[in-house]
């Protein structure tokens, strides 16, 4: 390529580029660019269509009987059915996840990042956690069934929300550990060295320096895992959530009946989705809108929070 032609000052970058590329119009480049952009937009379109389809499907239920839908129990007639029992199950599952998966998960992450010596045992624990994160959720259901419904039925009451809650806490534990460990790893070492320099013990440094700095990252991971647990159905089916009409309806905070049979929002959705009557379809969509509102709000909050802190700290 000759560069002998004198460049006038008015020549555009585009002209130079075209000259360098042999004056060809870059058709493949544009085609590829558009194809890639379309595949990116595909996800956004799916999300939009999904949300629109379900909200419009469930809208009538919300418009005509919002309160009775939230406070009603499961009945034979769609027009009388509600999700009170499902909300109760989902609430208590959330309580178990927060009470078990969060402390154990964050504790394990602190141990692995701050305390663990670089030895064989640590590496085994590390690999083990990553493998646990990839185990299908239904296999955790088998664990929950064999251990918490059968072996420990004296403690959990068998097919109860206690067994379901513990099972889902175990399901999200690896994710909590992995995300918390990532957040702790991102804490600058100067903070720790400063603490040690003042004579603090390892735990004092962790509690006063490392954990406060890593808190937003840890919180993001924990909220995401909580959202995942609340939307999960497969393990609960194995643990014996009632995929059908549940008769009893104890109050939302009736702790005494935690060892009774239970259901949860995703389970009710599964049950109603399988019913042939068309009026249950609107009900299913309405229940989905409720679960989506909970899960997506938690997701969006967690992601926004993470992005804010990421950009703040560069």
């Amino acid at each position: 390529m000759s560069i002998s032609a004198p460049l006038s000052s008015g020549i555009s970058a585009e002209a130079v580029r075209r000259r360098l590329h042999g004056q060809r119009f870059d058709l493949p480049g544009i085609v590829v660019h558009v194809a890639l952009l379309l595949s990116l937009l595909f996800s956004l379109v799916v999300l939009g269509v999904l949300v629109y389809d379900l909200v419009s499907g469930g809208w009538d239920v919300f418009a005509s009987r919002f309160a009775s839908f939230l406070s009603g129990t499961m009945r034979f007639a769609a027009s009388e059915s509600g999700i009170a029992q499902a909300l109760r199950g989902t609430l208590w599952i959330g309580v178990f996840v927060v009470a078990l998966a969060f402390p154990f998960g964050i504790g394990a992450a602190v141990y692995l990042e701050e305390y663990a010596p670089d030895n064989r045992l640590t590496r085994v624990i590390d690999i083990n956690i990553r493998n646990l994160a990839g185990v299908p959720s239904i296999v955790y259901g088998i664990l929950g069934f064999a251990v918490f419904v059968k072996t420990l039925s004296g403690l959990t009451g068998g097919r109860s929300v206690i067994a379901g809650g513990i099972t889902l806490a175990i399901l999200v534990l690896p994710v909590v550990i992995i995300t918390a460990a990532e957040a702790i790893r991102a804490v600058p070492d100067d903070l720790r060295q400063g603490g040690y320099g003042l004579g603090a013990t390892r735990w004092e440094v962790t509690r006063t320096q490392v954990l406060p700095y890593a808190a937003p990252g840890i919180l993001t991971g924990t909220v995401l895992s909580l959202a995942r647990a609340l939307g999960e159905a497969a393990p609960l089916i194995l643990v014996g959530a009632v995929v059908g009409r549940l008769g009893s309806n104890p109050g939302l905070f009736d702790i005494g009946s935690l060892d009774q049979r239970f259901t949860a929002l995703p389970i009710v959705i599964t049950y109603w989705a399988g019913l042939p009557q068309p009026d249950f379809r609107a009900l299913t969509a309405a229940a989905i809108v409720v679960v989506l509102a909970i899960v997506l709000a938690a997701n969006a909050a967690a992601i926004l929070m993470r992005n804010r802190y990421e950009s703040k700290r560069g």
């Binding site: 956004l44 379900l54 939307g231 999960e232 995703p266 959705i269 599964t270």
Partner: peptide, 18 residues
Amino acid sequence: KPTIEVLAGVPSVVVGFF
């Protein structure tokens, strides 16, 4: 990116019904 991450958070029962 955050929008795609939100899609990843949609529960599988919801996608099943969809």
